[in-house]
Design a protein around this nucleic acid. Structure first.
Lengths: 226, 226
DNA sequence: AACCTGATTTTGGTATACAATTATCAGAGG
DNA sequence: CCTCTGATAATTGTATACCAAAATCAGGTT
C-alpha cells in the first residue's frame, strides 16, 4: 500500500513521458523567443537536438500546432508561427469569456484552502504593485493562473484556456517590458483574487473583464505602434 | 486503375491524412455509441480493424483523449469515457460563453454570403419546427454550426468549441430522442440565426443564451431522471 | 530565358523490436 | 476453500529503419 518512493536518485523523472518533456521544452523555447517566429524546424533536427526519438517529437509538434505556436506544412517543413497582434486580439476575445466564466465559477466553488490562497495572492499582488517588484508579480501571476484553473472546478474551461496560453504568454513575453503598466496589472489581478476569495461572483466577473480590458488596450497599442 | 479493392473507394483519400481518417472514424463510432462508454480499446486492435498503422492510430487517440471521449491509462489500456451528466453541465458552462461570443462576433463580422446563409437556415429551422421534421432539423443544425464557426471569424473560438463538440454530440445522440422538444430547439436556433443575419449582436447573444438555457434545462432533467 | 531533369530534403506512414508496467492466471501451500 | 507467489501475457511508450509522396533546388539542355 504505502509504496513510498522516498528517493528518486538517478534521472529526475520516470513519471513524465518523453512526449511531455519534448512538448514542454519546445513550448518554453518558442514562448521565450529562443526559437524565433519564422524559424524553420524539422523532426529529425529536433530529435537529434533533444536526444528523443521522432515519435515523441511528432506528438509534441502536433500539440504545438493545435495551439498555434507552429505551423506544419506537409512535406515541406515546420515553422514557428509569427506574432500577429490582430490575431492576438482574437485570442483575447476568447480568453475574456473563459476567464470571466472561471472567475465566476471560482467565486462560487472555491474550497476553503483555495479561498485562503486567493487572499494571499491578492496581498502579494498589492505588495508587488507598491514595491514595483516585477519578479514577484510574475511569480504571483503564475500562481494565480494555476489556482484559478483549479478553483474553477471545470476541467473543460481549463482545457480551453490552455489552448490559448502559449500564444498569450509569447505575446506577453515579447511586449510587456515595453509599455506594460505592471503596478496597474498587479492591482487588477488583486481585485479578481479578492472578489473570488469573498465569493462575490459578479464582482469577480467585473474584475476579470477590467483586467482583460487593460490587456486589450495594451495589445491594441502595440498594433498602432507597429 | 491499379489495385481494385472492390469495397473501398480509393478516390478522395489523397487529401486527408490517415490520422484524420482514423480520428473521424473513431469519433463517429464513439459519438454514435457504436463504441459504448466503458469499452476497452487497444492500439493494436484498432490498427488491425481500421487497417491503419499504429502511428496514425496513436495520434488520433491522443486527440480523442484531449476531447474527453477516451481515457488513456498508460501501459494499461484505453477506454471509452462514460457519459456523466454533471460533467455535461460543466461542458455547457463553457459552451455557453463561447457560443455567445461567436454569435456576437458573427452578427458583427458576417459577410454578405454568410448573412444570406443565416437567413436560409433561419427559414429552414422554422419550417422544420412547423413540420416536426427531425431530419431537416439535424441537417440545418449541422449547417448552422459550420456556418457560425466560419462567420465568427475567430479561429481560436472555433478551436475551443471543437474541443467540446464530441462530448456534446454524444450526450445529445444518447438523449435527444427521449425528451427533447425539437420544434422549440429549432425555433431557438432560428432566433440566433435571424439575429446574426440582422447584425444585431445583443439580440444574437441573448438568443444564444436562450438556446443554451433550454439545453441546460434539458440536461438537468436527465440528471434528475437518472 | 525557358524548360526539363534528377538529386535532396521533408513529412506521412509502416513495420518491427524492445522496454516498462500492469493484468492475469496457474499452482503451491495453508 | 482461500491466499500468496511467480511466471506469463498484454499494453502502451519509445526507438529505429525504411519507403512513399511531394516540394525544392541546382544544373544542364534547348
Amino acid at each position: 500500500m504505502t509504496t513510498e518512493t522516498a528517493a528518486k536518485p538517478v534521472s529526475a523523472n520516470r513519471t513524465t513521458s518523453l512526449t511531455d518533456r519534448a512538448y514542454r521544452a519546445l513550448e518554453e523555447r518558442i514562448v521565450t523567443l529562443d526559437l524565433a517566429p519564422g524559424s524553420v524546424l524539422s523532426e529529425a533536427q529536433l530529435s537529434e537536438q533533444l536526444e528523443i526519438g521522432r515519435t515523441p517529437i511528432r506528438e509534441a509538434l502536433q500539440r504545438l500546432a493545435r495551439e498555434g505556436l507552429i505551423v506544419i506544412l506537409p512535406r515541406k517543413g515546420i515553422l514557428v508561427s509569427d506574432i500577429n497582434p490582430s490575431k492576438q486580439l482574437l485570442v483575447l476575445e476568447v480568453r475574456r469569456e473563459i476567464e470571466r466564466m472561471m472567475a465566476r465559477a471560482g467565486a462560487e466553488r472555491r474550497s476553503d484552502n483555495e479561498r485562503q490562497a486567493f487572499l494571499e495572492i491578492a496581498e502579494g499582488m498589492e505588495n508587488a504593485a507598491r514595491d514595483n517588484d516585477d519578479i514577484a508579480f510574475l511569480r504571483f501571476d503564475n500562481d494565480f493562473n494555476v489556482l484559478l484553473a483549479r478553483a474553477s472546478h471545470n476541467e473543460y474551461a481549463v482545457g480551453a484556456i490552455n489552448l490559448l496560453n502559449g500564444l498569450s504568454r509569447r505575446f506577453w513575453y515579447l511586449h510587456y517590458k515595453k509599455a506594460a503598466d505592471m503596478p496597474l496589472m498587479a492591482r487588477l489581478h488583486a481585485s479578481v483574487a479578492k472578489a473570488i476569495a469573498e465569493g462575490d461572483a459578479d464582482a469577480a466577473a467585473n474584475a476579470s473583464d477590467a483586467l482583460v480590458d487593460y490587456v486589450e488596450t495594451f495589445t491594441r497599442a502595440t498594433v498602432g505602434g507597429a
